[in-house]
Amino acid sequence: MTSTTVTGRRSAGDRGSAPGGLPLTRVSGVGLGVAMLWFSLLVLIPLAAVAVTASEGGWSQFWRTVTQEQTAAAIELTVGTAFLVTLVNIVMGTAIAWVLVRDRFTGKRVLEILIDIPFALPTIVAGLVLLSLYGPKSPLGVNIANTRTAVFLAFLFVTLPFVVRTVQPVLAELDREAEEAAASLGARRFTIFRRIILPGLTPAIAAGAALSFARGVSEYGSLVLLSGNLPMHTEVASVRILSSIENDNPENAAAVAVVLLAISFVVIVAVDVLQRRMVRRG
């Protein structure tokens, strides 16, 4: 996913740098205009507005807001948990995709559909499900309400499909004969996986990981019931934003939002760079 946007960006850049460039036809000119307007209205202008709100009090005000004890703790928890969850997803998502593509078993079709439930389910419903299963009245006797584990679990729940769904189609398209060739050249299964299969999957895994991380950072609904939103303990950034708004402090909310935005942006760029290197190296 990220790789497509990157190629698009690069070719657009090439075109711009070519002497004279390519003249736009009327249709493509209108198309570009509409696309830019749409993108601006929905994304760029709101983002800019948030940034402007956050910067109203100046840099020192912004810095004071985000380093304020409770806010910093919320950001740290959110980012840290999203990072851990992403690591788990890289392993588990790839494993699940592997099972779905390479193995044949009864109930495979059902599992295929179930994987998407976290996509389709309203997150507050997910939160309710988690609360009823792992809350104070847990039928399993597992009570993780009001703990950081609850945040971790909620993140895991909603981000489960990302790596699976980005890796699955790529894995299905991989050249099985390349693996057979590697086997006949003497490579054992693990070596084949590491040196032949994994490089082919890396871009997809990276794309899934980036999406999973971004989703984790922004999560609200699924954890708000189970985590208890205890300041300095289980309060995440999105909850912190909401409480800032409720306390009539939009600058504070905007500042946290800008931090989250910046983190997401850095992660997406970093993953992209990393994935290019990995693909090259093998």
């Binding site: 004969e177 390349a178 060739a181 590697a182 693909v279 093998g282």
Partner: peptide, 10 residues
Amino acid sequence: FQHYAAFKHL
């Protein structure tokens, strides 16, 4: 193999 089975990333 008929379709080369090249290791595409190498």
